[in-house]
Design a protein around this nucleic acid. Structure first.
Lengths: 198, 198
DNA sequence: GATTTAATTGACTTTTGGGTCAATAGAATT
DNA sequence: AATTCTATTGACCCAAAAGTCAATTAAATC
């Protein structure tokens, strides 16, 4: 029996984790569309063919779901940061920005603004993760300013500007489904790149 | 008695309207900071030194307050649109964008994303107003593409990109209060302008 | 096929916060 | 001073939705 427990479809723990992730993902999609407070646990459950009570077998609270949604995006973003190679700062930034855009379009992840609905440690952690991402982007911008590929200005405002455009993607993308995620991503990179290039 | 009723401090109706506006403005500020659903009517009332019940003398419901908050910004934006003069499309767009940014920083108005918390006619109207603004901005962009001041691309994506950056302003501005509204506005115009210029 | 463990549920409790209303205080008018 | 209209309140009510739990079904193990 031991030799079967590790293999995907029969490994209880893996199954559990997969289902837990599905819950969080489904909730995230709903949060992105209608917002955290306009989405009830019953709706989330129904979208998965479950009852509300079943959700609590996988998560401790609704707030925990929101927390995990945030962590999911920031983790994916961390991966992007590590993977963003390039000669110049501008090149690195372009790669990164494009990957961020793809996360939000192709992968259906949501960069939720609703941090205020998180309390205490949850909120603290999420803000820290967001700060980490912002610092990583800022670093790229500064590298670019140093190597001459990005024009000099206040890096913080630049980063907020760029991240804001990204956040807004959640609101309008897929309401306006005629454009593919890759197309959007390209357009965003172009727009961003022209805006900051020296 | 008739000759005194029109003068500000004694005109009952003007007084009422001023108080009503104060309610909406205070609520808007709170919504911007903590979000619509994280702000209770009691909190709004207390911030004005009133009890919850008194609010209902000025508004019909919390939803109506949110609605009026939206309308307030879009009305101010409409004024900006009308006032945005310039030789080229890029110039018009720059003026407009700068004024938008000032609305959100200097004037303390909030461009709330929380449209999903509005129902029925309220939501319909707000979305229409938002659409109107977006079309106005799009028009400027197209003019610029025509007169050669703005580089050709998908206007819709460009506009969403720019409006997104603006929306995000609500989230971070004033948490990071070391920069004046005018400075931010200038930086945003520069960033935008470089991004779209031919 | 009996037993243990995992997964799920219906029915319930609890909390939060929006909204109401009759009663009261305050201003202006007579 | 009495009256009328404006403004405000405390004490309720109520609905929605989060969260709990004992009981049940499904799945795996013996």
């Amino acid at each position: 029996m031991k030799d079967r427990q590790d293999k995907s479809p029969f490994d209880r723990e893996a199954q559990y984790n997969a289902k837990r992730r599905a819950v969080i993902f489904a909730a995230g999609a709903a949060f992105r569309r209608r917002g955290y407070h306009n989405t009830s646990m019953v709706e989330i459950a129904k979208s998965l063919g479950l009852s509300k009570a079943a959700l609590y077998y996988y998560v401790k609270s609704k707030e925990e779901i929101l927390y995990e949604c945030h962590i999911m995006v920031y983790s994916a973003m961390d991966v992007c940061v590590k993977a963003a190679k390039g000669q110049t700062g501008l090149e690195k930034l372009s790669r990164l920005y494009g990957e961020f855009a793809r996360l939000l379009t192709r992968d259906g992840l949501a960069l939720l603004a609703d941090v205020d609905s998180l309390k205490g440690e949850f909120q603290k952690t999420v803000l820290a993760r967001r700060g980490k991402i912002e610092r990583a982007v800022t670093r790229f911008v500064k590298i670019g300013m140093h190597d001459g590929s990005i024009k000099k200005s206040d890096p913080k405002v630049t980063v907020f500007f760029l991240m804001g455009a990204l956040n807004w993607l959640n609101v309008w993308y897929e309401s306006d489904g005629r454009m593919s995620g890759d197309k959007i991503s390209q357009a965003f990179v172009a727009q961003m790149s022209e805006g900051v290039a020296a």
